[in-house]
């Protein structure tokens, strides 16, 4: 895909809104990550143990293995933080978007909002099949196919040769 050409065809307001969306999602990821890093008692354990649905066995197995929980805790804390930084700064953005989608996919699959599933942590809204994780996944997918990192972001410098050529 000639991504620089695609990006170059955006209108000013399109670029602005896409970048704002990217930064907002980045903020969400980064703050979730930083909060976990700053809270030594945070653990994914309860969330994993409370999993429902067809993948519940897998998540609950991880919950019962202290080493797996430690690894998952580490990956969440740093995964969320790095994805957040990547999205906000527009740095290695495509990898960040991909990482974000994978993480959100796990959250969605571990706690699918299906009929009859009740979770220990009540949700702040009402969801059936579609929840905020799923919406955020698709918002990231939109950002993947409408990239802005080479317009506003450090990727502009990383991929400068390619970008400069297109100018």
């Amino acid at each position: 895909m000639q991504q620089s050409n695609v990006s170059y065809s955006y209108s000013g307001s399109q670029v602005t809104l896409l970048v704002v969306l990217r930064i907002l999602i980045g903020w969400h990821f980064l703050y979730e990550g930083v909060t976990k890093l700053l809270n030594p008692s945070w653990s994914s354990l309860g969330y994993l143990a409370d999993s429902k649905g067809i993948f519940a066995d897998m998540f609950q197995n991880w919950a019962s293995n202290p080493n797996a929980v430690r690894t998952i805790d580490f990956m969440n804390e740093w995964g969320l933080t790095l994805v957040g930084l990547g999205l906000i700064m527009g740095c290695l953005t495509r990898i960040s978007i991909f990482g974000g989608i994978v993480m959100l996919g796990f959250y969605y699959l571990s706690h699918p909002p299906m009929v009859g599933y009740k979770y220990a942590l009540p949700s702040e809204g009402s969801y059936l099949w579609v929840n905020k994780n799923l919406i955020e996944i698709f918002a990231l997918a939109v950002l993947y196919v409408f990239p802005t990192h080479q317009i506003v972001g450090i990727d502009r410098l990383i991929f400068s040769k390619k970008y400069n050529k297109s100018i």
Binding site: N39, P40, S41, W42, S43, L45, G46, Y47, A49, D50, A63, S64, N65, P66, A120, L121, P122
Partner: peptide, 27 residues
């Protein structure tokens, strides 16, 4: 749980209240 805290998140409270942490911690 890893430690006791005065300011506890709603999540921890819910999970702890339902005994999930107690059952699975340390495996």
């Amino acid at each position: 749980s890893k430690r006791i805290d005065a300011v506890t998140s709603a999540t921890a409270k819910y999970f702890a209240g339902r005994g999930l942490l107690y059952t699975y911690r340390q495996g």
